[in-house]
Simulated scan of single mutants.
Amino acid sequence: MIDSADNATHSLPVTGATRLHFSDQARTTFTVDLGQDLLGDWILTQTWGGSRQRGGGKRLVVDGHEAGLQMLQKIAEKKERSGYDQVHPYHVRSHWL
């Protein structure tokens, strides 16, 4: 149980994370996640890799859930314009697809 008098303890996030996964014809994969860390900060994480390229990733703290969703949408649109196909629509609002 979380002690309400404890200013250092934060409750666990109540909003689920959002993940998009893309792949292209060369079997290169790209995943972008939006979720909260244990301190409540919203984090956008991008990872990529494939059989012909070295994998990598980066993390970015965003200004909130809505800002993260907007960035997620822009990244998804850019990947689709670049020839990537979405592999699994995880927890995504249907009007983005």
Rank of each mutant, 00 (worst) to 15 (best):
I2A: 05
I2D: 02
D3Y: 06
A5V: 05
A5C: 08
A5R: 15
D6V: 07
D6W: 09
D6F: 09
D6C: 08
N7V: 14
N7F: 13
A8W: 10
A8C: 07
A8R: 05
T9F: 01
H10D: 00
H10T: 02
S11P: 13
S11N: 13
L12T: 06
L12C: 02
P13T: 02
V14E: 06
T15S: 00
T15C: 00
T15P: 00
G16S: 13
G16D: 12
G16Y: 05
G16N: 11
T18Y: 01
R19W: 00
R19M: 04
H21N: 10
F22Q: 06
F22D: 07
S23P: 00
S23E: 11
D24F: 06
D24N: 15
A26Y: 10
A26W: 08
R27H: 15
T29G: 04
F30H: 10
F30Q: 03
V32T: 06
D33I: 03
D33W: 08
D37I: 01
L38M: 13
L38K: 13
L39A: 15
L39G: 14
L39E: 14
G40Y: 01
G40H: 02
G40W: 01
D41T: 07
W42Y: 11
I43L: 12
L44K: 06
T45K: 11
T45E: 10
Q46E: 15
Q46T: 15
T47L: 05
W48I: 07
W48G: 06
W48S: 07
G49K: 03
G49F: 07
G49S: 05
G49L: 04
G50K: 04
G50Y: 04
S51G: 09
R52L: 13
R52A: 14
R54K: 12
R54S: 13
R54N: 10
R54C: 02
R54G: 08
G55I: 08
G56S: 01
G56M: 02
G57W: 03
G57N: 04
G57C: 04
K58R: 15
R59P: 01
R59D: 12
V61T: 14
D63V: 03
G64N: 05
H65G: 02
E66M: 02
E66C: 00
A67Q: 09
A67C: 02
G68H: 04
G68T: 04
G68C: 05
L69Y: 02
L69I: 10
Q70R: 15
Q70M: 12
M71S: 09
L72Y: 02
Q73L: 12
Q73K: 11
K74F: 09
K74R: 14
K74C: 08
K74A: 15
I75E: 10
I75Y: 14
A76I: 02
A76D: 12
E77R: 12
E77C: 05
K78I: 07
K78M: 12
K78T: 14
K79Q: 15
K79L: 15
K79N: 09
R81H: 03
S82H: 06
Y84H: 05
D85K: 11
Q86K: 11
P89L: 09
Y90G: 11
H91S: 08
V92P: 05
V92H: 10
R93E: 13
H95Y: 13
H95G: 08
L97E: 14
L97N: 15
